[in-house]
């Protein structure tokens, strides 16, 4: 802990080591954040069970300052997408993300959250949460073992270590970060950022397909 707080190369007299740390603002800011990352308590699917195991006594992620699972997004630092994201669930997840205070992070746990996984071809599965939320760490596995999850969370800590207040802390900028538009459920999932594309694609389809089936043209 001392080592990560002290700036490298600064000599502290022997008698003061452990009492005094000489560091930069960036370093102490990130040191505080990385050691008290509170996850949002939200389990989606199978990966959530491994997440619970990781929280339990054998793997115990409280060693990394992460044991305070917050059911409320207002108190959470990062969101662990632990499972398959379906089209029906994604509006809620986006809303939760918008409700989280900055600085906030997203960890995609497992194959489904990263890219759809085994269920990618399914009609109501979002192939990866990164279609909507900015993902910081992807953890492979189906489900990732607790060791893999811990490794992924340590990667998140590393990422935080390297964020400089001056350049990376966009949350202190005047305009901050805009909320992500919450998608709505129509005949299929409507991403409000892609309304124009959707309209164009539906127009192109019109002459080609019959009125009563919504088959996708494929070769």
């Amino acid at each position: 802990m001392k080592e990560s707080l002290n700036s490298p190369g600064v000599q502290i007299p022997e008698e003061l080591s452990g009492l005094v740390a000489i560091t930069t603002l960036d370093r102490i800011y990130n040191w505080g954040r990385r050691n008290s990352l509170w996850p949002l308590m939200s389990g989606l699917a199978c990966c959530a069970i491994e997440m619970i195991c990781t929280a339990a006594s054998r793997y115990d992620f409280s060693r990394f300052g992460m044991e305070v699972m917050r059911p409320s997004p207002r108190q959470a630092d990062f969101m662990l997408i632990s499972g398959t994201v379906t089209k029906k669930m994604v509006p809620q997840l986006v809303r939760l993300y918008n409700q989280m205070p900055e600085p906030k992070y997203v960890v995609a746990m497992g194959a489904c959250a990263s890219g759809g996984g085994p269920f990618k071809e399914g009609y109501s599965v979002v192939p990866g949460i990164d279609k909507f939320l900015p993902v910081d760490v992807y953890i492979p596995g189906c489900p990732p073992t607790p060791q893999a999850l811990l490794n992924g969370l340590m990667k998140l800590q590393e990422k935080i270590d390297h964020q400089a207040l001056k350049t990376d802390a966009h949350w202190y900028k005047k305009d901050g970060s805009a909320p992500i538009p919450v998608p709505i459920l129509g005949p299929d999932l409507i991403d409000l950022r892609k309304v124009e594309q959707i309209r164009l694609a539906s127009q192109v389809q019109q002459p080609a397909s019959d009125a009563d089936n919504n088959e996708v043209p494929h070769e």
Binding site: P127, L185, D188, I190, A211, H218
Partner: peptide
């Protein structure tokens, strides 16, 4: 990649002539 075959490049398919702006969600 399945995305390359889909006109929207995503796991999406809308009925022909669908207008997202006039849609009233449930």
């Amino acid at each position: 990649r399945a995305e390359e075959k889909n006109p929207l490049g995503d796991n999406l398919c809308f009925p022909p002539g669908f207008d997202p702006e006039s849609w009233v969600p449930d």
